[in-house]
Nucleic acid binder design. Structure first.
Lengths: 237, 237
DNA sequence: GCAATTATTGAGATATCTCCCATTTTTTCG
DNA sequence: CGAAAAAATGGGAGATATCTCAATAATTGC
C-alpha cells in the first residue's frame, strides 16, 4: 500500500514503537497531500500505514495531533537545512533568493511534502510563523545592510509569503517550471524597489541547489544560530 | 436561526421554489464561511435555512452543486458591479487600483462573502479564473497604454492574485485595517516597476468606494462590455 | 372551492468516522 | 526458555453524514 517514506527510513534502527509511529507519519503525509487535511481520515492513514485502526490511537491522540507533528517536523527539517546550506552567504538579499529558490525546488521534488506545506500553512499558524521568522531574518539583514529601505512589517512579510507559496503551488500543479523560484524572487525584489538589474542578477544567478535530506538523520546540531526572531511592529497606516 | 440574507431578499417576489432555493444559498454562505467547505454539511445548511433535510436535495444535487452556484453568483455579482463602478476610468493602472481596493473593502464589509471567496478560490478554478480575467484586462490595458513593460503572463497574474487574496485574508482576520487595499496595490505596482511616486499616488489617492449591492437586483444589463478575455501565453523560462 | 400540480417533509437505509478496550501478538531480558 | 512488559489488534458502540422516497402540505388554475 505504501513505499515506506522518509520518516520510516529515519526510524529504521529505533524500537518498534518508533517505527510504527514513523510509518503512521509517512502515511499521514501521503493522505494529507492526496485528500487534504479535512477530508483525511484516521482510518485511511492507518490503512495506508498498514496497521490496525486502533494502533493509530496508541501513538496519536487524534488527527490534529499527527497533523501538527508532521507539519512541525517538515517545517523544522526544511528550514534548518536551508539555513545550514547557506551558512556562508552574508548578503541578506542573496540569502532570501537562495532560500526561496531552494525551498520551492525542494518542495516540488517532494510533492507530497509540498502539498502538505501548502495545505498546512492555512491552518497551522505555528508552521507559517516559523517560516516567516526565517524569511524575516534575511530581509531584516538586507535592511540593516542598507539594501532594503522599506519598513518590514507583518503585512509585507505576509504578502511575500503568499507570493512564495503561490509560486510553489504553481510549480506543484505543473503550471510553472524550475524557473518559478527565480521568477518569484525577482518579483519580490522588484516589489522592494531593489534596482531591477540587481534584482535580476540575484534571482537568476546560478546557484548550487543542494539536495535536501529529509528528515535530518539523528537530529544534527545546528551549524548557524537559528535565525533570531524578528519582532514585527504593528501595521502602520 | 438565520437573519435572511441577500439571496433571500432578492427572491422575495419569486415563487416558493425560488425562495427556498435562495434561503438555502444564503444558509450555505453562512455555513461555508463559518466551517469551511469540507467541514460544512448538507444537514447544517438545511438546518440553518430552516427547511427539512430532504428539501435540500430537491434543489441541489449535493454540496458541491450549491458551492459552485453560490461561488459563481458571488464572483459574478462582485466583478460586474466593480466593472460598472469604474466604467469611466480609462487608465489601466488606476482601474487596477480601484478594483483591488473596492474588492477588498467590499469583501471585508461582507465577511461571510469574503471568507467564501477565499475558501472557494482554492478549489473552484472557474471562480478564480473569472476574477483573473477581469484583473488581467486592466493590466493589459495598462500595458497597451505603455505603463507596464513587463510581460503579463499566467505566472505574474497568479502572483498578483495571491497578493490580493492575502491582503483580503489579513483584512478579514483583522490583521490589517482599511489601508490593506492601498498597501497591496502599491506593492503590486512597485513589483511591476511603476515609478514609486506614481505607484504611491495611484494606490493612495482618495477614491469614492461605492457601496456594492449584493446580489444585483433583478439581473441588470451590463453597462460596460464584460472585460474581454485575455489570452495568456505559456510561461517563458 | 376543489382537483391537479408543485413543494416540503422527516424517518430511515446505508455508509463512514472516531475512539475505546479486552484480547492477542511481539519483544525484552533475567 | 519463559515470564513480564510493550505493542498491536480489530470488533463494536455511538456519532454523524448522505441521499431516498412514500406521505403530507401548500399553491395554483379552473
Amino acid at each position: 500500500m505504501m513505499n515506506s517514506g522518509p520518516f520510516t527510513a529515519e526510524a529504521r534502527h529505533q524500537n518498534k514503537s518508533a517505527r510504527t509511529r514513523a510509518r503512521l507519519m509517512d502515511a499521514a503525509v501521503q493522505v494529507f497531500a492526496r485528500d487534504g487535511f479535512e477530508a483525511a481520515s484516521v482510518n485511511e492513514i492507518a490503512r495506508m500505514a498498514e496497521v490496525a485502526n486502533g494502533t493509530f490511537y496508541v501513538h496519536f491522540k487524534d488527527k490534529d495531533a499527527i497533523a501538527v507533528e508532521v507539519a512541525a517536523r517538515i517545517a523544522t527539517d526544511i528550514t534548518d537545512q536551508i539555513d545550514r546550506a547557506m551558512a556562508d552567504i552574508d548578503d541578506g538579499l542573496e540569502r532570501f533568493g537562495f532560500a526561496t529558490r531552494q525551498f520551492i525546488e525542494f518542495a516540488s521534488h517532494q510533492p507530497q511534502w509540498g502539498w502538505v506545506i501548502i495545505r498546512a500553512a492555512s491552518f497551522l499558524p505555528q508552521m507559517h510563523r516559523q517560516m516567516e521568522t526565517h524569511m524575516c531574518a534575511d530581509l531584516e539583514r538586507g535592511r540593516r545592510q542598507g539594501q532594503i529601505t522599506a519598513d518590514i512589517d507583518a503585512f509585507l512579510v505576509d504578502t511575500i509569503m503568499s507570493m512564495v507559496f503561490a509560486a510553489l503551488a504553481a510549480r506543484l500543479r505543473g503550471d510553472a517550471g524550475p524557473e518559478a523560484g527565480s521568477r518569484v524572487t525577482e518579483l519580490v525584489l522588484n516589489m522592494l524597489n531593489i534596482p531591477p538589474q540587481r534584482a535580476h542578477a540575484i534571482a537568476w544567478q546560478t546557484i548550487a541547489l543542494k539536495e535536501l535530506h529529509l528528515p535530518t538523520r539523528p537530529r544534527q546540531e545546528r551549524v548557524s544560530p537559528p535565525a533570531e526572531p524578528v519582532r514585527l511592529g504593528p501595521i502602520q497606516i
